[in-house]
Nucleic acid binder design. Structure first.
Lengths: 127, 127
DNA sequence: ATAGAACTTCGAGCGCACTCGAAGTCAAAC
DNA sequence: GTTTGACTTCGAGTGCGCTCGAAGTTCTAT
């Protein structure tokens, strides 16, 4: 049993992480992963734990609206190794600002929605 | 001077609310507004304060990821008048749940990003 | 009166992030 | 050994939310 025979299948990872197998292949094709996923018997993908963790982090970046292109940059930097550590940190710090801004905007919008809800409930109570 | 000669132009509203004039026409065409916007001299749009407030609320719904189709439903209900007040309230309450869920997910993702940032900074400090 | 800016409608086009489907390969179970 | 189902690649298709541009009209300033 070679090392590439171990690891999780694409369906298992899809289930685990909560993205479609199609999306996993798409992410790999686009270069969002650090490396191409290893293959078992020269065809089926076998994901290591590190691969799964990387995919998980990609979903965190996606759920905070980082564009695919930016994640691709991040992955490309990671592939270059240690020399790009500062660049990756900078990229994440810039993104962090945008996430905080998104949270603030969404919180403000929630307040507006809550205000509207309150006026509806008030009017219902008045009748 | 008739009443339709008053009010703001599309460019003024675009500036004020922070969406493009193209988007404002699109929203109106799609039925996201409560009523068609009144016209001055039978062509140019003239927005009332109520129109602007409605557009502002639409942007709050958009920034919390309510789909155009749902906003369209909401506007259609509003057009029906008082009989649909409860339905509109329900729609907003359902959406509120989704906004809270989004905030929670984004907050969790921010924590993951912060964790990653921390490991980068640690490693930088170690050198 | 006329130039130029701002508006109108309409339909087409675009960018993003997948999603799908065809056609073929591989593997595990019976 | 053959069926069943999960996998493979590849390119095309989809849905969403605008965005753009053409062609014509109207307003404003000079």
């Amino acid at each position: 049993m070679t090392i590439t025979e171990q690891g999780l299948s694409i369906a298992q990872v899809a289930e685990l992480v909560g993205v479609s197998a199609h999306a996993l292949r798409y992410y790999e094709r686009e270069g969002l992963l650090r490396n191409p996923i290893e293959r078992a018997s020269s065809s089926h993908r076998r994901y290591t734990e590190a691969d799964v963790n990387w995919v998980r982090f990609v979903t965190k970046l996606r759920s905070t609206a980082m564009p695919i292109a930016r994640i691709k940059e991040y992955a490309a930097l990671a592939r270059q190794g240690d020399a790009t550590r500062q660049a990756r940190l900078d990229l994440l710090l810039v993104h962090r600002m945008s996430v905080v801004a998104q949270l603030e905007e969404m919180t403000k919008s929630l307040a507006a929605i809550d205000y509207k809800i309150a006026t509806y409930e008030e009017r219902t109570a008045q009748q």
